[in-house]
Design a binder for these strands. Structure first.
Length: 488
RNA sequence: GGCGAGUUGGCGGAGUGGUUACGCAGCGGAUUGCAAAUCCGUGUACAGGAGUUCGAUUCUCCUACUCGCCUCCA
């Protein structure tokens, strides 16, 4: 039986994975705050945990698990969302702030789905929105107050960090150490500087809900505790997210959940993906060095190429995004897709990747397995392995159009990828026949010169056994350059 | 300042107490009028220092450097 081993941030070691309840394997991943397009860094946990989700589903039968429940939230209550809506209102939009906020979050969720779909990520089974669980959050906060773990002060409710003895265990820090460095907000109504907000007051313009502490809105951390409890219960198997959420977000989630539901132990395994870097620096909002998934897609980088670049680095290592990696990944996928797509998947191919994946999602090693299958020409097995990893073509960009024509007794083949205009294809034919003619006449100097010039314009000419010439339109094909060639 | 992760061949990137992935690039060969493509072959790298060991890239300690968290962040 296949043993799954996963690195648990909480214990700092790889652990054998056994679900609490084989009838329902449960994982929760922190999702996006929906106020803008997802940047590339946002995509890393999505791809990482999508691989885990697919792996767990793939092994469910063998393991006798009845189902895998994957929950990923949308944070649709947040000051950044409010700010974005307020900006529109100030720009003269006549609608109410509430309507603008709703529109903004709806729109952003649509973008998020489209962009993550493009990366080959399966939608989680549940995608709860924070605003749908305000009641559950209020109930949880009331419970925390009743149990002495939280207190109300000046319209706020704060979590009493000192009341939870294991606070800091996940991230390996102590309350006293943190206060020493103290970069925490000093608020006069806090009992302790580390106490964090569960509920805060909203004034007239801001979205708010009635609560025992007046009209207000929840703090950031409580939503994940409330929603995971409602949908997965007091104990579940895996909790995931980016490493930057380890503190304070996940630490606070643990404190809230464990204090409110001492009968459970919240998440068994904590998994954190490392950051995505651009030019060696973390992609982040504050640095402003980010670009979105949509930006890349629009530049012609297919989603599965982005995905392969991500998978080529282990999820617990920082990954530097480079154009060079994208270029290599595209070439690799082109080869793999051409070999595998005509085939029906042969599940035997899974043996080439699953042993790597069950070892804490060792995707780089799994990729080696894919290369092995490709080298041995195992298209059907490769197909199955690619599908497991979510590397399925989103379009026919990799596909080779192929046509043969004869003219003046010459036989010439032309191939191209994706969509090409008839002008482009006509010109390619013209050059290919001219080259074939020159070669038939044994005018090699002219033929070589033409081939060289054509290549610079993105048309590759080559001799084949079965025809007089074979031409391929490359990605770099440029009509203007090649028109110049023809005139010479 | 506190805490954590990392430093592998030209580049990317796994892994291992002794047999040293994989990809790209390079080199050699087959093939080719020449190329391309393809196929075959080829590379003994693990930041520096000390220690443990029969033996360390792999374990321990120290140093240097890089990155992250401690503030919104995936």
């Amino acid at each position: 039986m296949t043993e799954i081993r996963l690195y648990n941030t909480r214990t700092r070691q790889k652990e054998r994975f056994e679900p609490i309840d084989p009838a329902n394997v449960r994982m929760y991943v922190c999702g996006p705050t929906v106020y803008d397009r997802a940047h590339l860094g946002n995509a890393r946990p999505v791809v990482t945990f999508d691989v885990l989700y697919r792996l767990l589903k793939c092994l469910a039968k063998e393991k006798n698990w009845q189902k895998v429940t994957y929950v990923r939230n949308f944070t649709d209550v947040d000051d950044k969302i409010n700010a974005a809506a307020l900006k529109r209102k100030q720009a003269g939009d006549p609608r109410s702030l509430e309507e603008l906020i709703r529109e903004r979050t709806e729109e952003t969720i649509g973008w998020y789905h489209a962009d993550m779909d493009a990366l080959g990520a399966l939608r989680p089974g549940r995608e709860p929105r924070a605003t749908e669980f305000i009641g559950a959050m209020i109930a949880m906060i009331e419970d925390l107050i009743a149990k002495g773990h939280a207190y109300a002060a000046e319209g706020h409710v704060l979590f009493r960090v000192r009341s939870y003895k294991d606070y800091g265990a996940l991230s390996g820090r102590s309350v006293d150490d943190m206060i020493a460095g103290a970069r925490v907000e000093v608020a006069p109504f806090k009992e302790d500087p580390m106490d964090f907000v569960l509920w805060k007051p909203s004034d007239g313009d801001l979205p708010g809900w009635d609560s025992p502490w007046g009209r207000g809105r929840p703090g950031w951390h409580i939503e994940c505790s409330a929603m995971s409890y409602e949908l997965l219960g007091p104990s579940f198997d895996i909790h995931g997210g980016g490493i930057d959420l380890q503190f304070p977000h996940h630490e606070n989630e643990i404190a809230q959940s464990c204090c409110a539901h001492p009968e459970g132990n919240f998440a068994t395994i904590w998994m954190h993906n490392e950051m995505l870097l651009v030019e060696g620096k973390k992609m982040s909002k504050s640095l402003g060095n980010f670009f979105t998934v949509r930006d890349l897609l629009e530049q012609g980088v297919p989603g599965e190429v982005i995905r392969l670049v991500f998978l080529s680095t282990h999820y617990r290592s920082p990954m530097d995004w480079t154009d060079e990696k994208a270029r290599e990944a595209k070439e690799t996928l082109r080869t793999w897709f051409r070999l595998s797509q005509p085939e029906q998947p042969n599940p035997y191919g899974l043996h080439s990747v699953v042993p790597s994946l069950v070892n804490d999602l060792n995707t780089p090693e799994a990729i080696r397995g894919l290369h092995m299958l490709a080298t041995h020409g195992e298209g059907a097995q490769l197909r199955a392995a690619l599908d497991l990893l979510g590397l399925t073509p989103s379009s026919d960009w990799w596909c080779k159009g192929k046509e043969d024509r004869s003219e003046d007794g010459l036989m010439v083949g032309l191939g191209w990828s994706g969509n090409r205009s008839s002008d482009e294809i006509d010109l390619a034919w013209k050059l290919a026949f001219r080259w074939a003619g020159l070669r038939r006449d044994r005018n090699y100097p002219a033929a070589d010169a033409l081939r060289k010039a054509a290549l610079l314009g993105g048309l590759e000419l080559r001799a084949t056994k079965n025809a007089d010439a074979d031409a391929e339109i490359l990605d770099s094909f440029d009509l203007a350059t090649l028109n110049g060639v023809e005139l010479e």
